[in-house]
């Protein structure tokens, strides 16, 4: 990028530096070539499709020939008072998920690391990973198996056994802000735990040996050694999630609550809103406007948070 900013009068130097760069690093370019080609195919060429967000599409006139509509396609995102609720839901859930996806897996990873019995530790990791394999459609069936009004395990077996009244789960919106984070954490636990485990195992034993000799207890070791040393991993994982803070997990919010309208105030997020709109209106301009909006906000947020991270610790920043 720097290269492109070189003023014209330095062209000779510029060409020279390119040649030298190529001569020195040609093997790097060769190695990266497959990756670059794939990124171009998968991401960069299609990126030009962003202009659709500003058009009313008519296929016969072609994409360039279709009339421009300015920001009209963005209007429906803010058209009703629901917009506030939807954006709030998306942000709150995702923020909560980010926190939960750090705290619990990190705690689990630390505990597993302390487990004396390697076999048991491995066994638990394996089992914890199970939910990660399941698609949201399958999970929606699991949840339904427990919470269905008539056939669910809770209402059919558990609550009567405890002498409690059945709950109409799919109409009780109060419980879902708890259920959804639980499901999300349950599903991703194995994944994040293994990521943090890998980082913890990577820490040199000598640090701990030295600390033990100095008389540091477990808690102090964790605070002074483990956490600071895996901070880069934590930061990366968090920054990446912040970048997608406006993109909700569609499966979790669409499949799991089973389109129960009574739950919309707590389950409707940007992605489900856009999808339902698409089903009715079928307009790619609207969907692409929403996608662009989400990208731009995520983009800005990542840059801001990265800037903040940089101010504290240059090393931990993503770029």
């Amino acid at each position: 990028m720097k290269v492109m900013l070189v003023p014209p009068k330095q062209k000779a130097v510029f060409t020279y530096s390119i040649v030298r760069n190529l001569r020195t690093f040609w093997m790097f370019y060769v190695m990266m070539l497959p990756g670059i080609v794939l990124l171009l195919i998968n991401n960069y060429i299609p990126m030009s499709g962003i202009i659709i967000a500003f058009k009313t599409i008519n296929y016969q006139e072609g994409i360039l020939g279709s009339p421009w509509t300015g920001l009209k396609n963005f209007e429906y995102l803010f058209a009703s008072k629901d917009s506030y609720i939807i954006i709030r839901n998306t942000l709150l859930y995702n923020s909560l998920f980010i926190v939960l996806n750090i705290v619990f897996p990190l705690a689990f990873a630390l505990m597993l690391n302390e487990m004396k019995n390697r076999f048991l530790s491995k066994l638990h990791q394996t089992i914890m990973f199970l939910p990660y394999f399941l698609s949201m459609i399958v999970i929606s069936y699991l949840v339904y198996g427990f919470m269905s009004d008539e056939r669910g395990y809770f209402n059919g077996t558990l609550l009567p056994a405890l002498g409690l009244e059945p709950v109409r789960w799919y109409f009780t919106k109060e419980v879902w802000p708890i259920i959804l984070p639980i499901i999300n954490t349950w599903k991703n636990m194995g994944y994040y735990t293994v990521v943090y485990m890998a980082a913890i195992i990577g820490i040199d034993e000598e640090f701990y040996e030295a600390a033990t000799i100095d008389g540091a207890n477990k808690w102090q070791q964790m605070k002074k050694i483990t956490i600071p040393l895996i901070m880069p991993v934590i930061t990366i994982m968090t920054l990446l999630q912040i970048g997608r803070i406006f993109n909700a997990d569609f499966g979790l919010f669409f499949q799991v609550p089973r389109e129960s309208g009574a739950l919309f105030p707590v389950t409707n997020v940007i992605d489900t809103y856009v999808y339902r709109t698409f089903l009715t209106v079928g307009d790619i301009g609207l969907s692409s406007a929403a996608g662009l909006f989400q990208s731009v906000v995520g983009f800005v947020l990542v840059f801001i948070s990265n800037w903040v991270v940089r101010r504290f610790n240059r090393e931990n920043a993503l770029f």
Partner: peptide, 27 residues
């Protein structure tokens, strides 16, 4: 994990049509 998320985003965002490639081919 990131794949699934971006895929659902794609699915949702449903059909953002192209410019260069699409128009060229379409035309």
């Amino acid at each position: 994990m990131k794949h699934t998320k971006s895929k659902t985003a794609l699915l949702l965002t449903m059909l953002i049509v192209s410019s260069l490639a699409a128009t060229a081919c379409g035309n």
